[in-house]
């Protein structure tokens, strides 16, 4: 696979080749300033340098409004007009697109399509082979534990089930990178824990690179190989913490001492990040 990267670009514009790199996603000196209609400017991201390594599960935490979603949208190619350099793997713009799957905070299922048709949407837009895609969609629906629901409609599913379907949809075109923006934010604590374990299982089974935004410190630690801590606005990377908890992780992991040590460390890092801002 040849390596292609992009330079400051508008959303949806082709990627310009750059020197080779090993990571799945590489961000160099990325800054983003929003201009609101009233002419005000919001400095959302400031000088972000970040590597997402191939195959790793990266969790991102930070205060509300610190620019996490903005960062994800930049990586997803949904946000243009930023400074700095973003690099993704792929031979062409369309191939880069195929290499990314997105799980939004809201499941964003199309209510007029049944579950199978919803999962097939990326395959349809990317013009992938239909027969193979249907087969894969069935596998994924089984993987997220919703076999038998293929011909139901979103209104017949619970919030947790819908979010699982949106994960299946993000995986149907077999992307190398899975971007998730608070995928479990709308779920109750119990469903959330179950989903965490399920997604870890999927990740272990599929060997994807995962970039997951979360508000929950324990979720970040429980799932991540690494946790990136961001400061309040303008968002900067305050710390990157390697999580050396053994895998496979399960509910027992949550009650271990090492787990508590990590969550404590991250909580302090988040506090430092925000007090720095207040002091300034």
């Amino acid at each position: 696979m040849s390596l292609v990267a992009s330079y400051p670009r508008r959303a949806g514009q082709p990627y310009v080749p750059d020197r080779p790199f090993q990571e799945a996603v590489r961000l160099r000196a990325v800054s983003k300033i929003y201009e609101t209609e009233s002419g005000e400017t919001v400095h959302a991201l400031s000088n972000i340098n970040l590597d997402v390594r191939s195959g790793e599960f990266l969790s991102v935490i930070g205060a509300s409004g610190c620019g996490k979603t903005t960062l994800l949208r930049i990586i997803a190619g949904l946000e243009g007009g930023y400074d700095g350099e973003l690099s993704l793997r792929g031979d062409s713009a369309s191939q880069v697109r195929r290499n990314v799957g997105i799980v939004f905070q809201d499941s964003n299922l199309l209510p007029w399509r049944n579950i199978l048709q919803n999962v097939l949407l990326p395959a349809q837009v990317l013009r992938l082979d239909r027969r193979a895609s249907i087969e894969r969609a069935h596998e994924l629906i089984e993987l997220v534990g919703l076999k038998g629901f293929e011909h139901k409609y979103p209104y017949e599913l619970s919030g947790g089930m819908r979010q699982r379907i949106s994960i299946a949809r993000a995986l149907v075109h077999d992307p190398a990178v899975l971007l998730m923006d608070e995928p479990f934010g709308a779920l109750d604590a119990l469903t959330r824990e179950v989903m965490n374990v399920e997604v870890l299982k999927i990740w272990e089974a599929t060997n994807k690179t995962v970039f997951m935004i979360t508000h929950s410190i324990s979720e970040a630690v429980f799932m991540g190989d690494r946790v990136v801590v961001m400061s309040p606005r303008p968002g900067r990377v305050v710390a990157e913490v390697d999580i050396a908890l053994p895998r496979p992780r399960n509910i027992e992991t949550l009650s271990g001492e090492a787990f508590a040590a990590y969550t404590g460390q991250l909580r302090r890092l988040l506090d430092i990040g925000s007090s720095r801002k207040e002091g300034a």
Binding site: R97, I102, L121
Partner: peptide
């Protein structure tokens, strides 16, 4: 956004 991210 979903459609756009897929290049539709």
């Amino acid at each position: 956004d979903l459609m756009r991210s897929l290049g539709a």
